[in-house]
Structures are given as C-alpha cells and as structure tokens.
C-alpha cells in the first residue's frame, strides 16, 4: 500500500487541497450552505489512473452520505469507487437543492427520480455561463459519470438487491446485495439523520454498520480535501478488516479497532472533526 502514490499524499495532514491546475473562477457566495459545485475531481491527482492491487479480495463496502447527494458524497463516492471499493451514496435532505442565481432561488429537484443528466441539461439551458462559473455544471458532469441520479437515504430499502439499470454505476460492483459495512456522512446533521433513521427502521436485518461522520464544509475545494480524507479512512479501515481475516489471528477484532483507527486518522486530518457509532441495519 505504501507504494501507492496517492496514499503518500493523503497521509499528509497539511491541506494540499490546491489542485495542480488553477482553481475555477472565483466561487460565488462562499458562505452559502448548499453544495457549491464540487469541481470535477477526475483530473486532479488522477485517483484512478492506476488500478489498485487486485489481490485483496476482501473489500469493505462503503456508503457516503451528504445533504443533496451531489457534492461531498459524490466526490467521496468517486474517490472510493476509483479505489475499487464497493460504494453507494445518498442524501439525507428532503429535496436536492443546488445553488441558483441567488441564495433565495435554489434549483430544487426531487430525489430518486431526477437524473444528474437531466439536471445538467436543465441548468445548461437556463444559464450556461453562471452554472459553469459556479462549478455546478462541472459537478453534474462528474456525477453523471458516477451514477444515474441522487438517492435519498431515508427511502433506501436496505438489503434490496441493486441490480436495476439505474442502480449501476461506479462502485456498484460488490454492493449488489444492497448493504454496506461502513456509512460515512459528511456533515453532523447527516450523521444525526442517519443514526436516527436506523433507530427508526428498527434494525430488522441484524447487520452491523459503522456510521462515521467526517465534517466537510459544503464547497467544492473542501469536498476535494474531504474526498481524499475519506479515502484515507477507508483504506485504514479496510486494512484492519483484512488483518482480522488473516487465518489464526482472532484477537484484534475489526469492529473493536474502529475507534482507534478513527483516532489515528483524526490526527492526520485534524481539520475534519469525526464522529462514530456502531448501528444496525
């Protein structure tokens, strides 16, 4: 793993967020809460240009969650899927909200039924200059290459096989069973929503799931940093899960080690406060 050049970078706790290329035109309204168009991360740091080692057969399955399933969770989704992890992603908001011409006029779409492609087309027709400048179109471009459209966490039928055409995309391989081992949320209220929702569902499946929050600000630079951090976390979790599976070594249980791994990760990424619990599907 140490040979992986991306990991060497990810370990650096300094914020090396500045992409090699110049950042896009000045992002408008920094303070805005909504996702501000994660700038397409494909060219940056070429996270997928070299395939991961294939001999690790066991992979933890991940799920990334943010408010609108557009910026932060999708950046992380892309990162994890390029690292060959099975990964799903969801939003916990009531609707998909993307920034509009002003803070009071967001573009609103419904979850589960709107594709990234249709959002892209609509916004491109509305005002291509604005939406390209604020990073929304590049973000949607990235998203449509990852999966069909934003999905809502609360509507997710956990354990339902994901084989339909709409559910295919990057990272869907290995997650066909419709279940994951680790949920990573990108904001504390999303963590709250996920944990509460799991309690609400009544844990009918008896399957444990680690729910981890990594607090990422909702703008595209932070989403890039957050995506790297999440990949770093995923790698260290997966490594531990694989160690547990080494035959004959039964003492270091993966689930037990999660707090310790997270603490270690937190030292590497002090600017992204983390939170964890073990829940049930």
């Amino acid at each position: 793993m140490a040979a992986d050049p991306r990991l060497a970078r990810a370990v650096d706790p300094r914020r090396t967020a500045t992409p090699p290329q110049p950042p896009p035109p000045p992002p408008p309204t920094q303070s805005e809460q909504k996702s501000l168009g994660g700038y397409d991360g494909v060219d940056d740091g070429n996270p997928g240009s070299e395939p991961r080692k294939e001999e690790e057969s066991f992979k933890l399955r991940f799920c990334t969650v943010c408010a609108s399933n557009n910026n932060r969770s999708m950046e992380a989704h892309l990162r994890l899927s390029l690292a060959e992890y099975p990964v799903l992603s969801f939003g916990t908001g009531s609707l998909v909200r993307l920034p509009g011409p002003s803070i009071t006029q967001p573009n609103v779409y419904s979850f589960n039924s709107t594709s990234y492609q249709s959002m892209y087309q609509e916004l491109e027709a509305k005002d291509p200059r604005l939406y390209r400048a604020n990073g929304i179109l590049p973000m949607l471009e990235r998203n449509r290459s990852v999966k069909w459209g934003p999905e809502r966490w609360q509507d997710w039928p956990v354990g339902m096989p994901r084989l339909s055409e709409f559910q295919q995309g990057k990272g869907s391989k290995g997650a066909e069973g419709g279940i994951v081992d680790v949920v990573i949320t990108c904001e504390e209220r999303c963590w709250d929503a996920v944990v509460d929702n799991l309690i609400e569902r009544g844990s009918p499946l008896n399957r444990p799931v680690h729910v981890i929050n990594v607090d990422i600000k909702d703008n595209h630079e932070e989403a890039l940093v957050g995506g790297k951090a999440i990949l770093d976390l995923a790698d260290s979790l997966n490594e531990a899960a694989n160690e547990e599976r080494i035959e004959g070594d039964g003492k270091a249980s993966f689930d037990e080690r999660v707090p310790e791994l997270l603490a270690g990760w937190q030292e590497r990424w002090p600017q992204l406060p983390a939170l964890w619990t073990l829940g049930w599907f």
């Binding site: 709250d192 603490a263 964890w276």
Partner: peptide, 22 residues
C-alpha cells in the same frame, strides 16, 4: 484522554442522545 478514548466517549454520548431524542 487518549485520542481513542475521546472518540469512544463522544460516540457513546452522541449515540445515547440519538436514541433518547428519537
């Protein structure tokens, strides 16, 4: 507290809170 203990204590408090608030 060790960093690990911090994660654990915070986790227990927040989880208790989540269940109670529910």
């Amino acid at each position: 507290m060790t960093p690990k203990a911090k994660v654990q204590v915070k986790s227990m408090e927040r989880t208790t809170r989540a269940l109670l608030m529910n």
